[in-house]
Every structure is written in structure tokens, then in C-alpha cells.
Design a binder for these strands. Structure first.
Ligand SMILES: [Mn+2]
Ligand SMILES: [Mn+2]
Ligand SMILES: [Mn+2]
Ligand SMILES: [Mn+2]
Lengths: 218, 218
DNA sequence: ATATAAAATTAGTCAAGGCTAATTTTATAT
DNA sequence: ATATAAAATTAGCCTTGACTAATTTTATAT
């Protein structure tokens, strides 16, 4: 079994891997985790020894099939606990991530599956991210962002990329949740700002960065 | 905040303290945790520095008011999670303790209280141990064991002292749960064995050790 | 092609929390 | 009172997973 730290690295690598198709470097991992690159190099050696990753200076870090499997399970636990915290314990959107960050490391053979069943086999977590199934498969991730669509498009908030409470609280203030309908009225050439209408309401302007962190459906 | 290890020591000391009125020695702690006495001496120093315990060679280890408070909260979390695992996730009696051993260390300001509410403010955990309330108070612990009563007494299983799966599985086999009525038919002089009738059924003989681990009501 | 900057790696340090082995202190039995 | 046993403590070592500082490798711009 893996240590808490190994699991956090695994999950980070998994995250970076499916985020973009980019090369996963020690520096990228270090930045994501807020650790020193030297520490990352140490851990890369450990995970390599455990055959969870392969590290090639050219290709960067890649998960082995076993590494993928293990990372997926951690993500599954994380997202299931998030659903539990929100739905059953009444936490807010922006509070659940940090607690799930710890709960995801509780290791028990049947815990995730029982929790899954208890929650009614949810497909998505409260941030709109798909929850890996017991068999490792999971629903498609949304990939189009609000910043990607043409002006005039009416879309539906499917997920959020950023899960910091700064962003989530801003969304709360704007009354945006998963499922909220947003119409893109205009893109400002100058800085990519977006003029939008939330749930048919009046016009609001948000930054490009904001738009890039909203994943949408149509 | 305390580390996982500090919390486990605190809880252990709390346990030994309310178990009997006996002196809490490094050796006793070491035995309970399965650690080396040398390690215990180290941790005693740390907890003393944090003002959670007072150690006197004569009196042994004692919890300070703060130490008591902190230990109580850990126990509260442990027992609430046990209720959750049994009632909501359908685990068996003998499986919940080890998982709760990890869950009890999840630290969040409101988690215990929310869980408590979600579970309907249970007074006792699945082993019959009282759950400390949010204010630190808790219901009286049961203290009379099946081995203590006179022959002929009809009593009710209120709690179990031992929570190992060996004991709990044995109880399952005998069809004994919290609330089960047991009549003590006879005490065998020779070795303290107990002849009992479970829920009005036929006679069964159990050991003295068995009887000492069943706490009862009348 | 070379200078410079960035990234990766190595070497050495640290704290936490274990351990063993050796020693000192305390208790117990003669 | 003394010998012996048990308990407590000290000293030194180990692993994990961080860090900093120094060095080497790789990439980039002139
Ligand atoms: Mn985590
Ligand atoms: Mn999430
Ligand atoms: Mn524990
Ligand atoms: Mn219990």
C-alpha cells in the first residue's frame, strides 16, 4: 500500500496527465504540490521503484497501468467523499475539497464501494468532475470552456476547473452553479473579457481567466 | 493541532485513565499501543511540552484539562464514525473499529458536529460506549460485567469491553448483540466459567474472561 | 557556436516517530 | 540489607519526506 505522500504525488501526476497532453516535468509537479523540485526528484525515484510511474527525461513522467489504476481509485474516493460532504453533511461547495483531500487516503477494501452505493452511484462530483466507477471507467470529462465558445452561444455550466474557495465563492456570489445556463453575449477583443448573461439575467462582465475555468455543455 | 501519532497516544492515555483508576506508566502505554517503551518516553516528553499531560514518576501520566478535552474530541469522532460505518454503510460490528481508527484523525472544525446531526445525535456507539457530546459531556459508562452479577440475574447486554474482531465474531456466533437479554444460570467455582441462557434460549457455557468483557444493565 | 537562463539533479541537513542496546532507577524477594 | 528482576531512561540509529545550497544538464537567444 502507498503512503499518504505517495498517494498525493500519484494523484497530482494523474491530474497533470489528463489535464493537458503536456509533458509532466519535476518542476510542474513541484509547482502543483507547492513542493521543492528536489523533493519531487526523490519521490519520482520512489514511485519508479514501485513501478507506478516511468520517468524519461524526454517524455517526462508517465503513469504505468498500475499507477493509473491506483491514481484512479484515489480520485474516486476523493470525489465520492465530496458528494457525501455536500449532500449528506450540508457543507458548502467551497469547503469540501480540503476535507476530501484527507478522506481520500482512508484505505479499506470496500469503503469506496459502500459509500458509492450509499450515495446512489453518483456520476459527477459537486464540481462537475466525473467519478471513476468501481471498474475504473468513468464518464467523459467536459473540455469546452466558456472562453472557447462563439458569442451568442447559450451554454450550461457542466463543471469548474479551478476548485479553490476564492473561485467557488465568486461563483456563489454570481449565483452560478453546476447546471446554470449562461449565454455568452460578447467577447472583448482587448483582454478577452466576457460579457455574459447568467440564467437569463442582466449582463455581467467576467475575465478571460474566469471563462477558462468554467467547463460547459450545450 | 496534533499529529496523528500524538492523537493516538492521547486517546490511549484517555482510555487507560478511565478504564481503571490505575497508574498510567510508560510500559502500560507501550503495551496498549504495541510500541517500544523508549518511544513512549519520547512521546511523553512531547505531550508534556504541549501541556497535554503531566508526568510524575510517582503518579504516572495524567491528562491536563486541555489533554482531556482534546482526547475526548478524538473519542467523539471515533465513535461517531463507527455509528456511520455500521448504520449507513452497512459494515459489520467487527469491521468498524479499524476504519474509525483512521477516520478519527480527520480534522475539520464542524465535521464531528455535522456527522453527529446527520446520525441523529446517537448516545452510544455500536459497541455500547457513550459518545461524548459536542460540549464534552457524555452519558455514564456501564461498569458492571456479566462476571460480576449473582447467579439467577437477568441482565441486558449494554456494551462490550473488548472490541477485537475475535471477540465480536464470537458474539455474533452466539447471537449476542447490544440489547440482548442474558440470564446468568450458574457460576462454576473451579474456573469462573459462566452458564448462561441467551435470549431465553438453551444453556451455554462461556469463560470468565468472556463474562468480564460484557458490560450489562439490569 | 556560445553565453545565459532554466531545469534537473546531487549532497547534505532536519524533524517526526519509530527501533535496539546499554544503562540507570525502582521494586521485590530472600 | 542485599541480590535480582522489572521498569524507565538514555544514546544512537533508521526511514520518510521535506528543505537549502551547490552542481550539472538542457534549452534558448544572440
Ligand atoms: Mn490528499
Ligand atoms: Mn471535486
Ligand atoms: Mn487512530
Ligand atoms: Mn466503539
Amino acid at each position: 500500500m502507498h503512503t499518504l505522500s505517495e498517494e498525493n504525488y500519484l494523484k497530482c501526476i494523474y491530474r497533470l496527465w489528463q489535464d493537458r497532453g503536456q509533458k509532466i516535468t519535476p518542476t510542474a509537479i513541484a509547482e502543483w504540490l507547492g513542493n521543492n523540485p528536489a523533493s519531487v526528484v526523490d519521490m519520482i525515484r520512489k514511485l519508479t521503484d514501485k513501478q507506478l510511474i516511468i520517468y524519461d527525461k524526454k517524455k517526462g513522467v508517465e503513469l504505468t497501468p498500475q499507477g493509473q489504476k491506483d491514481a484512479t481509485l484515489i480520485v474516486r474516493r476523493h470525489r465520492l467523499w465530496e458528494v457525501f460532504l455536500l449532500e449528506k453533511l450540508g457543507y458548502d461547495w467551497d469547503e469540501i475539497h480540503d476535507i476530501a483531500e484527507d478522506l481520500e487516503h482512508i484505505k479499506d477494501g470496500t469503503l469506496a464501494d459502500r459509500l458509492d452505493k450509499f450515495l446512489g452511484f453518483p456520476e459527477y462530483d459537486p464540481h462537475g468532475d466525473p467519478i471513476p466507477r468501481a471498474n475504473g471507467k468513468m464518464a467523459k470529462r467536459h473540455s469546452t470552456t466558456l472562453a472557447d465558445v462563439k458569442h451568442g452561444t447559450l451554454c450550461r455550466v457542466a463543471a469548474v476547473k479551478d476548485t479553490t474557495s476564492a473561485f467557488l465563492q465568486y461563483l456563489q456570489k454570481l449565483d452560478i452553479n453546476i447546471g446554470t445556463k449562461i449565454q455568452l453575449i460578447e467577447k472583448i477583443q482587448f483582454d478577452g473579457s466576457l460579457v455574459i448573461s447568467i440564467a437569463g439575467g442582466e449582463r455581467t462582465t467576467v475575465s478571460q481567466k474566469f471563462g477558462e475555468n468554467i467547463l460547459i455543455d450545450m
